[in-house]
Amino acid sequence: MTEQSRLVTVGVLALQGAFSEHLQLLRLAGVSLPIDDSDKITWSFTEVRTEEELSQCDALIIPGGESTTMSLVAERSGLLEPLRDFVKASRKPTWGTCAGLILLAESANRTKRGGQELVGGLDVRVNRNHFGRQVESFEADLDLPFLETLNDSSITREHVKPFHSVFIRAPVVEKILQPQQGIQDEEASVPETIIAPSKVAKINIHDSSIEKGVEVMARLPGEAVALSNKDITARATGDEGNIVAVRQGNVFATSFHPELTGDARIHTWWLDQVLKAIERS
């Protein structure tokens, strides 16, 4: 009998936005991921539009797009609560880019009038469309030290190369919040800020990294941004730079779009993280 191959299903939320770009890079990453027992893993990369499709997934990407559209369509398609279960109760690996970062935040501001539904999972406050309108969208090279943790020497050298990133009407992480079991109740009292509803992790899932709180994975150097709006510049370009990538336990998020670059390094790193999470569970 041949060795049993393990099927790992990674979904990309396909309600709206740049989901096909993520699927293309996942396929590239799935082939290039340097793992010792790669012959035992069979990847399945799939579009997710329904609760049933989500239930097949071991991990999920929430792509870039319009976060208001995605949350409204998710709600009307009966996906909002299943998504919260996936991220916050089952604690499965989830990665959000741009709009995905907004949806995965426990708190967000500058949303549409009347707010919007959030999935939550990351104890951060996100400032939506932080850099302004489309004419303020930009590209920048980022140093992403976490890519160096991929344990294959043949590609480690390449990781030193900065990651060319595209920011489109992008959000940033404005504030790291204290990890909370329930809702972010302090945030609820901040004007014009919305929060995600509480969802407690299932008892059999113990992930101490969630309690440890949010890790900052990348910052955008202040001088990388040339803003036309001087009011925003003053606040945005602090010495440390804006937080543009974070991780907390099973949830990873970036405010930029790795799916628009053709560079699959972050996808490769994340699939490796997915495998590690599956091994732990």
Binding site: G17, Q134, V166, I168, R169, L260
Partner: peptide, 16 residues
């Protein structure tokens, strides 16, 4: 002229 950024916003509108 930032074509990647300009075409990128259109990509974010897909499926909408």
């Amino acid at each position: 002229n930032n074509f990647a950024v300009k075409a990128g916003l259109a990509r974010m509108l897909k499926g909408g």
